[in-house]
Amino acid sequence: MSKEKDFESTLKDLEKIVGKLDGEIKLEEALELFEEGIKLSSDCEKFLTTAEQKVELLKRQADGTATLEVFVEVAAE
């Protein structure tokens, strides 16, 4: 999925396409819409199934700048 286009707007575009497919349209048009829709749908799927949890730890340095590092979960106190 492109960075400018988030999941929500992709889903909205998909909804529009499915809405158009609900109507009476020509088959060529329907196939074009389907092609476009299936692309959006697989984008959505990719977004939903990215399974890796990314957890980072923000650390404030002595000079006041903030840096991020990968968070390794520590045992509970």
Binding site: E8, L21, L31, F34, S41, E45
Partner: peptide, 17 residues
């Protein structure tokens, strides 16, 4: 919600075509 909305739309897309 989005995940279930997607599932729904995906099914509709396939059904329609």
């Amino acid at each position: 919600e989005m995940a279930s909305a997607w599932t729904n739309l995906h099914r509709r897309l396939i059904d329609r075509i």
